[in-house]
Design a binder for these strands. Sequence first.
DNA 1: AGAACGATCGACT
DNA 2: GTCGATCGTTCTA
Length: 206
Amino acid sequence: MARLCREFYARDTLDAARALLGKVLVRRLEGETLAGRVVETEAYVGRCDKACHAYGYRRTARTETLFAPPGTAYIYLIYGMYHCLNFVTEPEGEPAAVLLRALEPVAGTETMARLRYGDKPLTAYRKKNFLNGPGKVCRALALTRAENGLDLTGDTLFLCDGPEDIGLAPFPVSGKEHIIAGPRIGVDYAEEARDFPWRFRLAKED
DNA sequence: AGAACGATCGACT
DNA sequence: GTCGATCGTTCTA
């Protein structure tokens, strides 16, 4: 059990996307700890993936972060109003990342709910759809382009193996889980890459 | 300078 | 299931 180090990210992006499932994302915000368990990810690989912002090693102001060392946070604005959080992977110079699509709340739930819903009551519907999308996760963790380029081996935003690593009780033993792979969301424009089964989620066994 | 588009979400039918 | 919001990024000229 430990915080994930740079070597964890410096590998094949598909392997990283699968290995990140079940890990705990920690966000330190104004002295408070917000945390969630990773349950859904997607891989994006510049070398060969037309859905990746850095496809064909395309280098622009935005994609510059994808060329940063592995273990860097790549955060960008999408549709003019939402942000997406990614973890840069592969050896430095290979632009690639894992998109964080969904979390289960672990710590700081009240603050995350306030960031996401304000003072609106937390209905069953809102609870069910709390952190099940990349824009929702960034809203709940107060992550914007201001946090783009953050070093994930630092203290502001990082991943670790389990709740023990941030002084919390271990997760209760629950039913066995397995990884489901499927096509990515929202990349219909990406020609052959639209069908790559590079979305991974954690699900309960039947 | 201008136009097209998007790794989403929530409201609505 | 459909649709509009909303604006930075990217490309074209």
